[in-house]
Design a protein around this nucleic acid. Structure first.
Lengths: 389, 389
DNA sequence: TTGATAGCTCAAGTGGTTTGAGTTAATATC
DNA sequence: GATATTAACTCAAACCACTTGAGCTATCAA
């Protein structure tokens, strides 16, 4: 996931590859369309598009979805993405559990699984993941040959950094390259990422950002993560650890504090515990929220203040089309948090010619990052640049 | 400068274009080399490289720089960028003056000019810029046909945003697209950008970031700007206004304040004025600094504290290879500021496997942004992706 | 009914890269 | 000192994918 320092050259075969991806990606984000329209959008001849579509339909990635009459002329034969044309495996490894998901080509989860983890060492995890994959394939009857790859989310940051505690979460993984381990164990192409980046890509592939090319994603995981997407691609930084927003300071009623201390699952739980409440998981939080709990309302108000400050920084530094909130939180709670947040006025995003809201809610719940992991693989089929790196 | 939402398809001619740029860019950042080495680096055949080099030398963009013996085998004929093979015009429009620069293909300024501006309306500015270009070409004897384009830096942010005051700096420019005006007036391809992004690109083309592909650039202009470069390309945001770092809050001895109020030319001047000093320009500041002025030392200490906080945010959000400081400040002052700054410990950049320092000084002085403007044009010759957008 | 228009296919042409054989100049080995 | 090995490079032919131009078809407009 480290950005390639130097670009590769291009030849006829690589051109075909990028054109295939451009066709698929355009249809994915814009919906089914005909050859001529694709040709205009991509700056290619209709004949070239015809050849590519013939190839993609033969492989089952595209399907005819009918014809579209628009004024004079021959009606255009429409082609759309065939959801059953390919699948991606998503794997999320946490200290105490492994989550897996199988996504179809359209980005829809076909099946998801959770397995408790007693032994988080590489060999045990790889064995469990292999078993879970086989079980999911068997249960759904998906042809293993249609698996395009596996996205893997693990606790970051990766490599050595100044942020302590994280990489120690999974014992035995420090000395090895997880990508290589998973690739040999699963026999599939691997994308390795942190939870926030994966969740951000989930929105682009199967969520609210399907037609958005530049956005930021605030992910509620253990802490708070930021995923940045620019021109449809993740901005991962030089060493793959971009988006560590949790430790940046915000001002609170009691002085400066790390953003994560006001805006994260841990902070909700701490706040509730101070009032004698207990909400260990998403479902419990949701129940408390539906009951209109006062302490939770309190937390939302304080979190909204912190979110406003984070929004200020994110917007002024990136100028995204929108900022999406998601992760392991109840959807309704995120909606309330967004409603309670006043977007900062002194921001480049305080414009009125942007059709998108400045804050949106994306996918939420336990599986967000797992689905995102699989989305990283799907993104390679849809984006010429992702494959080039 | 707004990122293209959809990629274009590729064909044989576009492949040649990207391969030409890849060859030039690789030689630019890595130094002169032979055909075989280029072929390996770019994943092309030596024959393809031979054809491209033949074309580029015929056009004067590359020149033979000798042969390199390395072990057995035929010595490799080295090719390097020919500085005289092309030129780029840089234009910086400020409320009271216009700056121009002529850069050769290697990124070196050949000549720079400054002209006071009485009337900052479009027609007056365009006339002056045309005259300045002609004068620079005449003075240096550069063939006008070798001009590859003009980069233009103007006060931003562009379009409507929530940041007041900026776009009003130049009367008469609000209703028109500056790119179109400059293109018709100069008859050249135009790149329009803000000062920070331009300065950031200057470091990549002719400065300390020639071999760095992912970095942030803090620009001291009127306020404080941030230029972000990821995988060799500017991250401009969805609406072109990314990098507005000046308004994000930092904590100071007297409470929260905008970064710009501690870390900018205006803040130096305000601080000095409070002690009865006066340093209206870079030269005066430099003199004061060399004299060891106590008030200036004071400012440096406070600015360093603010810079440390900004660094924390930038590093954790982007994970760049390095952060470069530059702009309209004396070089020695920037060096002292860097020396006085303690890089934050709780940052993903606090790693010890990065050969680059976390803070570096880039080009400084009045012409930084102007030279950067021209660099935006040169970058298009060196970077396959820049031209694709 | 006729003409205009737009989507699409077929076949030939074209641009640029790859492939494979051959040449040259350097080091390594006998 | 002669020969083998190695690596860079060139030439010509093959190849891949896209473009071009002619022709077909289905729809709307006159």
């Amino acid at each position: 996931m480290i950005s390639a320092p130097f670009p590769q050259g291009s030849n006829a075969e690589r051109s075909r590859m990028t054109n295939r991806q451009a066709v698929l990606g355009h249809i994915k984000s814009q919906g089914a369309m005909g050859r001529a329209q694709l040709a205009r959008a991509l700056g290619l001849s209709t004949q070239a598009i015809s050849n590519i579509i013939a190839e993609l339909t033969a492989e089952g990635l595209l399907v005819e979805t009918g014809t579209q009459v628009s004024g004079r002329g021959l009606p255009a034969v429409q082609y759309g993405v065939n959801p059953k044309g390919g699948y991606a495996l998503g794997v999320e490894v946490r200290p105490a559990a492994v989550f897996t998901a199988l996504l179809d080509l359209s980005g829809e989860p076909v099946i998801t699984r959770r397995r408790a983890l007693d032994d988080p060492t590489p060999s045990a995890v790889l064995g469990i993941v292999g078993t879970m994959r086989d079980a999911m394939l068997a249960k759904t009857g998906v042809d293993p040959g249609l698996l395009m790859g596996a996205g893997v989310v693990m606790p970051g940051p990766f490599g050595q950094t100044g942020l302590a505690g994280h990489s120690a979460d999974l014992p035995g993984w420090q000395t090895v390259a997880p990508e290589v381990l998973f690739e040999t164990a699963l026999g599939l192409p691997i994308e390795l990422s942190n939870d926030a980046n994966a969740a951000a890509m989930a929105e682009r592939i199967g969520g609210v950002a399907r037609a958005v090319h530049s956005y930021a994603y605030l992910y509620f995981g253990t802490g708070l993560g930021l995923g940045l997407v620019s021109a449809g691609q993740l901005v991962t930084g030089a060493f793959g650890n971009a988006g560590e927003i949790g430790h940046i300071p915000v001002t609170t009623k009691t002085g400066p504090a790390p953003l994560e201390s006001c805006l994260s699952r841990v902070s909700v739980q701490a706040h509730l515990a101070a009032s004698g409440r207990h909400a260990p998981d998403v479902a419990a939080l949701d129940a408390l929220h539906r009951a209109g709990d006062a302490a939770l309302r309190d937390w939302i108000a304080e979190a909204a203040a912190a979110l406003g400050q984070a929004l200020h920084i994110i917007e002024n530094l990136f100028d995204p089309q929108t900022v999406i909130l998601g992760g392991a939180m109840p959807a309704a709670l995120l909606d309330d948090l967004i409603a309670a947040t006043t977007p900062p006025a002194g921001s480049v995003s305080a414009r009125d010619d942007n059709p998108l809201p400045r804050l949106m809610r994306g996918a939420s719940g336990r599986m967000t990052a797992t689905i995102g992991a699989a989305s990283l693989i799907l993104n390679r089929a849809y984006s010429p640049r992702a494959a080039a790196l």
